[in-house]
Design a binder for these strands. Structure first.
Lengths: 177, 177
DNA sequence: ATCAGCATGTAAGGCGTTACATGATTCA
DNA sequence: TGAATCATGTAACGCCTTACATGCTGAT
């Protein structure tokens, strides 16, 4: 069984741009990546340790004024592993939407409950859409960096699907009433 | 920590419509539910056992010609648990798309790799869209059942978001070339 | 002084997947 | 006769979340 831990690839990907600490990595994941992938400290630190031990990463311990800080750098081997992953044809794409599960079984209760659940979903999506749109806007106005296109495309995926969600919400509420 | 195992709710939801065996439940999940929720035998059977022990389900063992078969029925207590879940305001909706992760880090390799990864994704979505559309069509032509509306709305969510995915694929490929 | 943020990590527990193990029936 | 489908379950393993544990720094 080959290792399935995708957080390794997230870390490798981030480190292919810049050297970072575990804390920094967490912040990056909590940004634009967050809507299609998650990470936690309990996830990141062990992965960092493992990859340093297998030679995909090197670390540099700094103590800036008594406070310890470990910055990681990707190695050539790490870059190779990242590229190999990018070139693998299989990719697991999964959606786990409890809102849809509740709607699917909505017949077990009053229609109003389902309408309300859609409304809660709708509000959340509207909030998230604002954030995604701000990412897109920021990336559109700075197209000089070659990586910006990739970041823009993922954010744009979010914007377009979330807009489709909102259209569906309107339709679904109408059909339930 | 309250139990987070959502498979319980899937089972309760399915049993609120009809009595089923564990094997039947697996088949139902592998149908329309599959695109927003997954289940496995190693998941379902223990949940069934637990819920029977806590009184949310009752079982009836039949041996139709030497072959054992256990049919489960939902209890009033089980129905109450299902309704309480439907009325809970929080719902976890998460997307884990490795394709987007690969695209996000696409700058680490040739553009062609990213285009190819989008094409693989696109083909998969086209396949799944066909299936979802067939579910929708089947449900549209049989609107007499009150639960059909709920099934239709979830399938329709899939159709509309997958169509948005395909539009995005075209745009993304164009922008990369 | 105190609180938010920087910074690293561990431990427990929960959930899910996969593979394994077993055996009957139906249909070609 | 052999393959697919029906049918139930267990065990190992892996991954992730959450909570816990600790301590410094900078701003108010």
């Amino acid at each position: 069984m080959a290792r399935e831990r995708k957080i390794d690839m997230v870390i490798l990907g981030l480190l292919s741009h810049e050297n970072l600490t575990g804390y920094d990595i967490k912040k990056r994941i909590d940004g634009a990546i967050n809507f299609f992938w998650k990470g936690s400290f309990g996830n990141i630190y062990p992965a960092l340790r493992d990859m340093e031990q297998t030679g995909l990463l090197t670390k540099k311990e700094e103590s800036a004024g008594g406070r310890e800080k470990i910055t990681y750098r990707i190695t050539d081997e790490g870059k190779k592993v990242l590229k190999n992953w990018l070139r693998e044809e299989q990719a697991s794409n999964e959606l786990k939407y409890e809102t849809l599960l509740k709607l699917f079984f909505g017949g077990a209760d009053n229609k109003k409950i389902s309408v309300h659940n859609i409304e809660i979903f709708e509000e959340q999506i509207k909030e998230d859409l604002k954030v995604l749109k701000s990412y897109c806007k920021a990336l559109e106005s700075a197209p000089e960096d070659k990586d910006h296109l990739y970041f823009y495309l993922t954010a744009s995926f979010g914007v377009e699907t979330y807009e489709a969600y909102l259209k569906w919400c309107t339709k679904a509420k109408r059909m339930l009433q």
